[in-house]
């Protein structure tokens, strides 16, 4: 299974300009090979969350975590793949469906996956799948012979199972005055 070779690191970071750049710069500088990196906001507007997947054969996730933790804007880091966790990858796959056979095939394949057809015409269809990374890979493999013409994936997001909550301290607020006043965190892209 692909999953076995992968380590997944989750980082909570301050939602400030340049933070993604700092993380990317760290990976480049330390020669850490990253399979996927996703970032997005959380339910707290001043906190963003990153999910980083690495190939354990090439780089030790604990080294990545230790180095990430050194960044001042990184609030917390956890190697979620050390314990039970849920991970999801989303893909949009455009396949050629210019005859009845291919349309039927696509429909049948999608029924066996957590996938659905979100757009279909006489030439192409777009299939959306949200699943564990290896299941997404399996769907892609099945669609390949039919003819994939375009594809996009979000990269993996992950969360530990159960009551182990990865969150910042309840009393944490951003230190800098103006950001507090504006409440304008959306304006910053990390």
């Amino acid at each position: 299974m692909i999953e076995n070779n992968k380590q997944t690191v989750v980082a909570l970071v301050e939602n400030k300009p340049g933070v993604l750049n700092r993380v990317a710069s760290l990976f480049r500088r330390r020669n850490f090979n990253v399979d996927s990196l996703t970032v997005g906001r959380t339910h707290k507007p001043y906190i963003s969350r990153m999910t980083i997947v690495v190939d354990a054969a090439r780089v030790d996730g604990r080294r990545i975590a230790a180095n990430l933790f050194k960044l001042v804007n990184v609030i917390d880091v956890k190697l979620v793949s050390e314990e039970p966790y849920v991970s999801r990858d989303l893909a949009l796959i455009k396949v050629r469906t210019d005859d009845a056979d291919s349309r039927n095939a696509v429909t049948l394949i999608c029924e066996r996956y957590p996938a659905r057809i979100v757009d279909i015409g006489t030439k192409v269809a777009i299939i959306e799948i949200t699943a564990q990374e290896d299941i997404v890979e399996a769907l892609i493999n099945e669609l390949e012979p039919i003819g994939i013409v375009e594809m996009v994936r979000t990269g993996v997001v992950a969360m530990g199972r159960g009551v182990r909550i990865l969150d910042v301290d309840a009393d944490y607020e951003p230190s800098i005055v103006s950001s507090q006043e504006n409440g304008n965190y959306q304006a910053y892209s990390v």
Partner: peptide, 15 residues
């Protein structure tokens, strides 16, 4: 960025 422990570009004088 890679040769400082941390760095800042000051965008707001109040900060």
């Amino acid at each position: 960025l890679p040769i400082t422990k941390h760095n800042y570009l000051v965008n707001d004088t109040r900060e």
